[in-house]
């Protein structure tokens, strides 16, 4: 059974539809990558899944359970975490406090999760008492992902995690995504660096004008000449 699945969803902001039928599905432990041109509805799809905009048609399922238009904090409780593209850290709080906020809904002791996040992102351990606002872009992205990991999610939604980062950090983030996925976390991410992203993807979804243009495995999409021409920059 798919861990996360969108069935023909429609939706948008204030009456304007941006999504016109998006179908996506990834299995437990898979990486799904959404690519497409600007305005194709990539980020909007993620936000729709996370209950941040109104879905007017279609359904979203988490482990077979209908979660369409569910409130975000309930989704977090069900094991889904979301890392927005921008403003994704609490700038006035320390790194460790940021991570604690990720675990807000956990009643148990999350010390071991904290350790594993520091294990994924050793840079953060050194800066744990520094305000997140003082970190570099790449480190902030790590804090943001770390925060999302604190509830030990089954699915992690990432919105352009490498946007604006130097190639060095970009590779590091991709490495981390793979490492996190190896632990069994399903990942659905939007990416601009389509080639690199598809290379690590089990499934790829190419969106155009708010609906699926191509849907296949990452490898097949990489090798598809038509996809390559229009979406991978030749």
């Amino acid at each position: 059974m798919a861990i996360i699945e969108t069935k023909n969803i429609h939706g948008g902001y204030g009456g304007m539809n941006i999504l016109n039928g998006v179908n996506m599905s990834i299995e437990q432990g898979e990486v799904g990558v959404i690519i497409g041109a600007n305005g194709a509805g990539k980020s909007t799809s993620l936000k729709a899944i996370f209950g941040l905009l109104n879905v007017t048609e279609g359904a979203i399922e988490l482990n077979g359970e209908n979660i369409t238009n569910q409130a975000p904090h309930l989704l977090v409780e069900m094991g889904m975490a979301f890392v927005p593209q921008e403003k994704n850290v609490f700038v006035s709080m320390t790194v460790e406090e940021n991570l604690e906020m990720g675990a807000f809904l956990r009643k148990d002791n999350f010390k071991s999760t904290l350790d594993s996040v520091y294990h994924y992102f050793p840079d953060l351990k050194d800066k744990r008492y520094q305000p997140a606002g003082e970190l570099s872009g790449g480190q902030r992205q790590m804090v943001a992902m770390g925060r999302a990991l604190m509830i030990e999610p089954k699915v992690l939604l990432l919105d352009e995690p490498t946007a604006g980062l130097s190639p060095l950090y970009m590779n590091e983030i991709f490495d981390r995504v793979v490492a996190i996925n190896k632990e069994g976390v399903g990942i659905l991410m939007v990416e601009q660096n389509a080639k690199q992203a598809l290379a690590i993807a089990h499934k790829g979804f190419v969106l155009a004008a708010g609906r699926n243009r191509f849907t296949d495995t990452g490898e097949n999409l990489l090798n598809d000449p038509e996809v390559a021409k229009s979406f991978l920059g030749g």
């Binding site: 904090h73 977090v76 609490f90 006035s92 807000f104």
Partner: peptide
């Protein structure tokens, strides 16, 4: 306190606080 930090988080970035599951 957990709640106090959640307050600071909400004041810092209300959207992110909601996304983090803070009520």
């Amino acid at each position: 306190s957990r709640l106090g930090k959640a307050m600071r988080a909400t004041s810092d970035n209300a959207d992110l606080a909601r996304i983090s599951g803070i009520n």
